[in-house]
């Protein structure tokens, strides 16, 4: 085991994958608790597909992927938030319209420019090799912003998540906080997308929150537990991906599935004990 870890950390690309992945997993899980409880998980899914389209366009234009995809994802986040708040225009259908639309545009752009190759596969399912030095800096910087904002607004995020009407009536700017959550989600998704893959990045948001809610009963412990599960699963997934040369995103999701099952079993055992 120790030999394996030594071997893994002798490769700079593996160190980069850990450095990018860990803060992204942490941020995604923190935001995920709120998104899942507010029934906004679909926003994450929509955003990742928009991000894929943006990456494809950036690659075709030979532009920096981050500079193109961050603003597009942020704009899409605000749009998706508006759609899911406004049930009159069939928010869920509108979101799937935007996500499949972006995916299709991305695939078209790639086919017409470079052709469908392994790059597309990496975009969709994630690659351990895709992280550059600049990604590490960007990821650490953005994650620091997300964590700082989350900690400073934690009490308000709780209030807005638990009861938006009460929070609004007592003077909290709920629209503002919803936008902050959507904005931070967009940043996390864009940064984590190439490691996790466009199709699987949402799992980082949804899985740890749901896993942690199996056992934790307080918002604070749910949040801490989600962060813990998310980081552990990411680390195990990266190792799995290295050892078996499997796509990174898929490996991490498999670890998350296992964690979910373990938590569910513990919950069942506890319940039967209490009866």
């Amino acid at each position: 085991m120790i030999d394996l870890l030594k071997e893994i950390f002798s490769y700079p690309f593996m160190i980069r994958a850990f450095l990018v992945g860990t803060p992204v997993a942490l941020c995604a899980s923190l935001l995920g608790v709120s998104l899942v409880l507010k029934r906004y998980a679909m926003i994450g899914d929509g955003l990742s597909h928009v991000g894929f389209g943006a990456l494809a366009v950036a690659a075709a234009l030979n532009a920096s992927p981050m500079i193109v995809s961050i603003p597009i994802a942020v704009i899409a986040a605000f749009l998706l938030l508006r759609l899911s708040e406004n049930s009159k225009i069939k928010g869920d259908a509108a979101i799937s319209l935007i996500s499949t639309g972006s995916l299709a545009i991305g695939v078209m752009v790639i086919s017409l420019s470079t052709g469908m190759n392994t790059d597309v596969n990496n975009y969709l399912f994630g690659s351990i090799l895709s992280m550059a030095q600049s990604d590490v800096i960007l990821s650490l910087g953005l994650s620091a912003v997300v964590i700082l904002l989350f900690v400073l607004t934690y009490n308000r995020i709780f209030a807005v998540t638990f009861d938006e009407n009460f929070a609004k009536a007592t003077g909290t700017n709920t629209e503002g906080f919803n936008m902050i959550i959507a904005f931070l989600t967009a940043l996390v998704i864009v940064v984590g997308m190439r490691l996790m893959g466009a199709l699987l990045i949402t799992s980082l948001i949804v899985f740890p929150a749901l896993t942690s809610m199996r056992l934790a009963k307080r918002f604070f412990t749910v949040t801490l537990n989600a962060a813990f599960v998310s980081i552990i699963c990411l680390w195990l997934g990266l190792i799995l991906s290295y050892v078996y040369s499997t796509p990174t995103g898929a490996s991490i999701v498999v670890c998350n599935i296992i964690a979910f099952v373990i938590y569910s079993i513990i919950k069942k055992i506890r319940e039967t004990k209490n009866e």
């Binding site: 209030a159 638990f162 934790a216 749910v222």
Partner: peptide
């Protein structure tokens, strides 16, 4: 919703 009584009241 996973929240303790104290967390809800304090909010």
């Amino acid at each position: 919703f996973p929240a303790s009584v104290y967390e809800v009241v304090l909010s």
